[in-house]
Design a protein around this nucleic acid. Structure first.
Length: 112
DNA sequence: GGAATGACGATAA
DNA sequence: ATTATCGCCATTC
């Protein structure tokens, strides 16, 4: 886990918004995933795109591969990396290679 | 203020 | 399954 206190130039208005997002991401159990929108709703602030924005800017250092799109497709430009993690964690995948959301979806506060 | 831009989401074709 | 549109929402120009 990296230095999350670094560079939080964005989202100042939301105070700990960035940290909150990263905290949720870290709370995702291995082998499970959640979505950008779910995180946004869980925090009750901003939207899915803003969560994505945080991941893009501050996602290094957290298990970013456990955050996928609502339809189970992988984060853009990182598919290869993500796949390797899924293979290592045993994340339920569909035969197409995308996430099996029915099996892998995890929502914050669900057991963690 | 207005337009363009995103690790998004839901729907329609 | 894939592409096209539209809605969302904060940032940036």
């Amino acid at each position: 886990v990296a230095d999350r206190s670094a560079d939080r130039s964005a989202y100042r208005s939301g105070e700990d918004w960035v940290e909150d997002v990263l905290t949720v991401v870290e709370s995702i159990p291995p082998g499970r995933v959640t979505t950008y929108g779910t995180i946004a709703q869980s925090l009750g602030r901003h939207g899915a795109r803003q969560v994505g924005n945080v991941m893009a800017r501050h996602g290094a250092g957290v298990p970013w591969w456990r955050v996928v799109r609502a339809d189970g497709s992988l984060p853009p430009s990182h598919e290869r990396e993500a796949q390797e993690h899924y293979r290592a964690e045993g994340t339920p995948l569909r035969r197409s290679g995308s996430i099996d959301m029915r099996a892998a979806f995890w929502e914050p506060s669900d057991g963690a």
